[in-house]
Simulated assay, not measured.
Amino acid sequence: MPDISTTMIIVLCAAAAAAGWIDAVVGGGGLLLLPALMLGLPANVPLTHALGTNKAVAIVGTSGAAVTFARKAPVDVRTAVRIGVAAMAGAMGGALLAGVFSKDTMRPLIMVVLLLVAGFVLFRPAFGAAAEGGPVSRRRIVAAILLAGLGIGFYDGLIGPGTGTFLVLALTALLHLDLLTASATAKIVNVGTNGGALAVFAYQGAVLWQLAALMAAFNLLGGMAGARMALKKGSGFVRAVLLTVVLALVVKLGLEQWA
């Protein structure tokens, strides 16, 4: 493990717990966890090691949240797994290209996407408030596999931050789910994206396993706590957290961009 101070390790563990909570409720924990790793790791540690360690931490918390949701939320596990398998394949492809784009290049793009997300949710108050009745058509499931699975999975392997949030929005729109069910489904899909990317990073030796194991324990606790709170509070709570997280991250990324 790189030479990291005890204080920084505590900060990274706290960030992991907070990211796990955010990820479980609405996704987007990577937009907290990855920057924390990029700032906390020594300057000589490659970006791919921050990405790989991020995946090793995130998959533990996401798995814990997925299990918690699957037990109590009305999730179509079969459909979620199918999308998750496609997401795993997409994430592996993205991870193979990780490091091609610098963080300075990607930050403005992520900001634009987040602003569009915030605007859409803010001006569509009925979005995700309730699921539409009736079975989901085969065409919509295929679209979810291609867009939410392969597409967002590829992004997760390539860069990662915001994947959970994008999954929640895509699944809500494509499968006509309420935000709570979409968040629960996204956790299962996110396990696939994290697993695919982690497999590639691990093969490349780009995971700091000792640090990841410590942070993963805190991420798991945060993820399970977030899942329980989302189940208790419902879709309205998820929507409020979604807007808060997205707007806070836009401000954070903007300050970093023009600092």
Rank of each mutant, 00 (worst) to 15 (best):
M8N: 05
I10Q: 00
I141F: 03
L146I: 08
V121H: 04
A213D: 09
A126L: 08
L242E: 01
M92L: 08
V238L: 15
L211M: 15
Y155F: 15
A186I: 11
V136P: 02
S63G: 03
I159D: 09
A212L: 07
S235P: 05
L147T: 02
F120A: 08
L214K: 14
K55F: 11
A19V: 00
L231D: 12
A36E: 02
T62V: 11
L116C: 14
R140Y: 04
A126F: 13
A227R: 00
V113F: 14
A56L: 01
A14L: 14
S183D: 12
R82S: 10
T6Q: 11
W258T: 13
F201S: 10
R78E: 05
A173P: 12
G61E: 01
G153P: 06
A87H: 02
G160F: 03
D3A: 08
A199R: 10
G27Q: 01
I159K: 05
I110V: 13
R124H: 14
Q257D: 02
R228P: 01
A227S: 09
N190S: 14
D3H: 02
F201C: 07
Q204C: 15
M224F: 03
I9C: 02
S5M: 06
A43Q: 09
L243V: 04
G226R: 07
K232Q: 13
R138L: 09
R140M: 13
G192K: 09
M111I: 15
G192H: 04
P135K: 12
L115I: 15
L169R: 10
P125T: 02
A143W: 09
A216H: 10
M88Y: 15
V142H: 05
I59Y: 10
G153F: 00
G30Q: 02
G195I: 07
F237N: 04
L177P: 14
A89W: 00
G234M: 08
F127E: 06
P2S: 14
G119Q: 12
V75F: 04
D104I: 04
F120P: 15
F201N: 02
A129V: 10
F166N: 09
L179Q: 11
L51N: 01
M229S: 14
L37W: 00
I145M: 13
M92I: 05
T48V: 05
I152M: 13
G223Y: 00
V117E: 10
L169T: 13
L180Y: 03
W258F: 09
V189K: 10
L34H: 03
G149F: 07
R138Q: 12
R140K: 07
I145Y: 07
L115V: 14
T185S: 15
V77L: 11
A66S: 08
